[in-house]
């Protein structure tokens, strides 16, 4: 654990969240609260609902039942509440999703200018600051397709940071990367964690979880099965499903 988040206020809370895709019960009464500065790693087999869960937090997915509160703002489906939440929550996707038709710098300045009304000059200053932070400022005038996967993902992180979010969601940020590029992205994320960013990461990078996470949460079939500090989680998992999963994951590492 990098810093203690125990005394910090709650930033995100989910209460008894239910989600269905048709008849498929994707999230089964999920309750979770995340304090300011906490780093949560979400893991579990594919289809377990971990991506769906974080996508509910910034309203990319809707929920059928339950309550999600982010920074005191209840997500009630209204445009106002969705806007308020998205202003505070940044997201990084598995497939980067950079805008391919504009430069790296423009990728970073677009949202601050359009959403926050930041002036062009200020947005560029902000963009350069965060591109510098993910160590990719020298590529600012290139187009996304001219960068490697790892570089693109770091730009995606910078793009999200330019909105100065209070929370960062990572949806399997290294899963689409070639092995040699995983480290540069993880290092960037570790740097963010050190600076005290509140983070929820869906990832199978157990080394990262050990090093950074305050809590590791294991999900299976839409439920939270187990939740523990990394030491406990990896040394002595309680549930059989967790043991099986860890056995499969760690066999490759």
């Amino acid at each position: 654990m990098l810093n203690s988040a125990k005394d910090q206020p709650t930033l995100i809370s989910l209460e008894d969240v239910q989600k269905w895709y048709g008849t498929f019960h994707a999230l089964k009464s999920i309750s979770l609260s995340v304090r300011k500065g906490e780093k949560i790693v979400l893991c579990g087999p594919s289809g377990s609902g971990k991506s769906t869960l974080i996508r509910c937090i910034n309203a990319l997915e809707t929920i059928e039942e339950g309550k999600i509160v982010v920074e005191g703002q209840v997500l009630d489906g209204s445009t106002k509440s969705i806007d308020a939440v998205r202003r505070e929550v940044g997201m990084v996707f598995q497939s980067f999703n950079l805008f391919p038709h504009i430069t790296v710098l423009q990728n970073c300045t677009l949202a601050p200018m359009r959403v926050r009304g930041t002036s062009h000059a200020d947005a560029e200053r902000l963009a350069r600051k965060y591109l510098e932070r993910v160590r990719i400022l020298d590529q600012a005038d290139k187009y996304p397709a001219q960068l490697s996967g790892g570089q693109q993902q770091r730009v995606a992180i910078a793009r999200a940071l330019c909105m100065e979010p209070k929370v960062m969601l990572f949806d399997e940020p290294t899963s689409a990367l070639d092995p040699e590029m995983v480290k540069e992205v993880l290092d960037t994320m570790i740097g963010l964690a050190r600076d005290g960013m509140t983070m929820i990461c869906v990832t199978h990078e157990m080394g990262f979880a050990r090093q950074v996470a305050d809590r590791v949460i294991f999900m299976d079939s839409g439920e939270i099965v187990e939740e523990a500090e990394p030491e406990v989680f990896f040394q002595s998992p309680e549930h059989q499903r967790t043991k099986t999963f860890l056995g499969e994951i760690l066999a490759h590492h």
């Binding site: 202003r87 996707f93 999703n97 805008f99 677009l110 959403v115």
Partner: peptide
């Protein structure tokens, strides 16, 4: 669209 939404673009 998802990235644009996540950034809060209208």
């Amino acid at each position: 669209t998802e990235a644009a939404n996540a950034l809060g673009l209208h």
